[in-house]
C-alpha cells in the first residue's frame, strides 16, 4: 500500500510541524562566519547530512520498520549530548505528532503520544508517521535526510539573502548523497537497534548550546 504521493505530503516544507522556525544550526554558523555563500552552505549541508542526518534518518527508518519507539527514543537521547538539541528534537516531535495524528491517525502514534506527552524525538515520530501513512523505512529516512539539509538551506536564504535559486541548486546537487544516506540508514534499521549509526558533529553540539542562550535570534535553533 506504499504511496509515493504520501511521501510528498510528509516531506513538503508546508507540512505543519514547526520546522520553519528552525535553522538546523545554520544561524550560529552564519554568525560565526562559517557560512558566507552557496559553497559554504553546500559544505555545511553535506557535513550535517553525514552526521546528525544519517543518525536521525536511521532512527526514523527504524521506527518505520516497527522497532520499539520508546527504545529508539532512548537511543536518540544517547545520541544527542546537547540538552538544547534534545529539547528541540522533543519540541519538534510533539509538533509533528499533532500534525501526524490529524493527517494519518494510528494506534501506534496515539500510544507514543501517551507515553511521551512532552514529545518524543522528532525522527522517531516521523518514522511512526511514515508507517501510519503506508510508507517504508527508506521513505522515512529520505524524508529526514532531506529535512536535515532543506532546513538550513531555507534559513540561509533568509539569513544571508542568498539567491534562492542557488540555495535550491545546492539541494539538487546533494540528491545523490541524500539517496545514499537514506539507503544506508534503512539498511542499518533492518539490522536492529544495536546497528544504528551514531554519527555526530562537534560544531553542531557546541554551537547549539551557545545559540540557545542568545538573547536575540531569528530562529529557535
Amino acid at each position: 500500500m506504499t504511496t509515493r504521493a504520501a511521501l510528498l505530503v510528509l516531506a513538503d516544507g508546508r507540512f505543519p510541524a514547526g520546522g520553519h522556525a528552525h535553522s538546523g544550526g545554520a544561524e550560529p554558523a552564519v554568525a560565526a562566519g562559517r557560512i558566507r555563500d552557496a559553497q559554504d552552505l553546500a559544505d555545511y549541508c553535506l557535513g550535517r547530512l553525514h552526521t546528525t542526518g544519517l543518525t536521525s534518518a536511521a532512527l526514523a527508518a527504524a521506527a518505520a520498520h516497527g522497532l520499539d519507539p520508546l527504545a529508539l527514543d532512548e537511543a536518540a537521547d544517547a545520541r544527542t549530548p546537547s540538552p538544547a538539541l534534545r529539547a528541540v528534537a522533543r519540541k519538534l516531535g510533539r509538533q509533528l505528532m499533532r500534525a501526524a495524528r490529524a493527517t494519518w491517525p494510528s494506534a501506534e502514534l496515539a500510544a507514543l503520544a501517551a507515553a511521551r506527552p512532552r514529545g518524543a524525538h522528532q525522527p522517531v515520530v516521523l518514522g511512526l508517521t511514515a508507517r501510519a501513512a503506508g510508507l517504508g523505512p527508506e521513505d522515512a529516512a529520505h524524508c529526514v535526510a532531506y529535512e536535515t539539509v532543506s532546513g538550513p538551506a531555507t534559513a540561509v536564504v533568509r539569513l544571508l539573502s542568498l539567491d534562492p535559486f542557488e540555495a535550491t541548486a545546492v539541494l539538487a546537487r546533494l540528491t545523490p548523497a541524500l539517496d545514499r544516506v537514506a539507503a544506508q540508514a534503512a539498511a542499518a534499521a533492518r539490522e536492529g537497534i544495536g546497528a544504528l549509526p551514531a554519527a555526530s558533529a562537534p560544531l553542531l553540539d557546541i554551537t547549539a548550546e551557545a545559540h540557545a542562550a542568545w538573547p536575540v535570534r531569528l530562529f529557535a535553533s
Binding site: 544550526g25 554558523a29 562559517r34 557560512i35 559554504d40 559544505d43 555545511y44 549541508c45 553535506l46 557535513g47 550535517r48 547530512l49 553525514h50 552526521t51 544519517l54 548523497a177 558533529a201 562537534p202 560544531l203 553542531l204
Partner: peptide, 10 residues
C-alpha cells in the same frame, strides 16, 4: 563521508 572538515563538523 563528505563535509567532515566543513562548517557543520570541524
Amino acid at each position: 563521508s563528505g563535509g567532515w572538515d566543513g562548517p557543520a563538523v570541524l
